[in-house]
Amino acid sequence: MAQETLILIPARMQATRLPGKPLADIHGKPMIVHVWRRAVEANAGRVIVATDSAEILQAVKAAGGEAVMTRADHASGSDRIYEAVTKVDPAHKAEIIVNLQGDLPTLDPRLVPECVAPLGSGETDIATLAALIADDDERGNPNVVKVVGTPIGENRLRALYFTRATAPHGEGPLFHHIGIYAYRRDSLERFVGLPPAVLEKREKLEQLRALEAQMRIDVAIVDTVPLGVDTPADLERARRLIAP
């Protein structure tokens, strides 16, 4: 029997570079609604927006979506989705939890099941995505997170490290990490209970907390990177990419 999946989209209003980002207008609809629709089109599980904003909650509900209020003081999206899971699924029916960022309005829906697929291995705690870096400018860009991993099959890596540096050294491919995660439910519970780790704080990459705790992260290699909207320029690019 297929494992039940919950797709959670954390969304908060506070964004330094683009205030009110989830409600930014893209062809007459808030950005968070575009992300919710892409997640629904994935047909991979129940989709819920987890927010600390009544405005976001109402925008999602007005579009016909499901949303839940969470506390405003969460340090990360992982903490927010964990609170949401405990609220919307207290009976523990869902065994797989997807953390889908709320600033990916150009998301290709097929990336959601692609992210979940590595959990088919019973040894995997967390699954995520990466794409081959083809642009030389991305190789040295600290805003492009790289995953260093060992191949474990066709288009699969076992993650050894995540870094903002250009790594690994030497000839060979580099992989751009895509910040979508699928957790086994007990792995998510364990992860949010861990204290911030040394390398996590140094690189400012939350996923290193899991690796430092010896949790296994497997990576599916895909052929597209969704646009993450962090700045007004990103928003304009998203408007151009999404047909009105």
Rank of each mutant, 00 (worst) to 15 (best):
L194V: 01
V88E: 04
E83H: 04
A130Q: 04
L104F: 13
L211A: 00
W36F: 07
A15T: 11
R139C: 04
A127N: 03
I126T: 08
E123L: 00
I221D: 14
V98M: 01
A127D: 07
E123H: 00
D186S: 11
A117W: 07
T70C: 10
L199F: 15
R110E: 13
Q207C: 12
T106G: 00
G193F: 01
V68H: 07
P90F: 12
V47R: 06
I32F: 07
A91M: 15
A117F: 09
D137I: 03
P226F: 11
L174E: 03
R37Y: 09
G228F: 03
A233C: 06
A213E: 07
F162A: 07
R202D: 03
A72T: 11
V35R: 10
I221G: 12
V49I: 12
L57W: 14
Q3C: 13
S121V: 12
R164G: 01
K204T: 12
V98S: 00
E203K: 03
I96G: 11
R237E: 10
K61F: 14
A182I: 04
A75E: 08
L129H: 04
P196W: 05
N43L: 03
G140W: 02
E200S: 08
H74C: 13
A94C: 03
R12T: 12
E212F: 06
L57G: 13
R237M: 09
V147M: 01
P142W: 07
A84H: 02
A182G: 06
A84I: 01
D52H: 13
T224S: 03
L199S: 15
V147L: 02
D89N: 05
P196E: 08
I221M: 14
A182Q: 05
G65I: 08
D103P: 02
V116K: 02
I126R: 08
I152Q: 10
A84P: 02
S78W: 05
R237F: 02
G153N: 03
L8V: 03
G64D: 12
K29A: 12
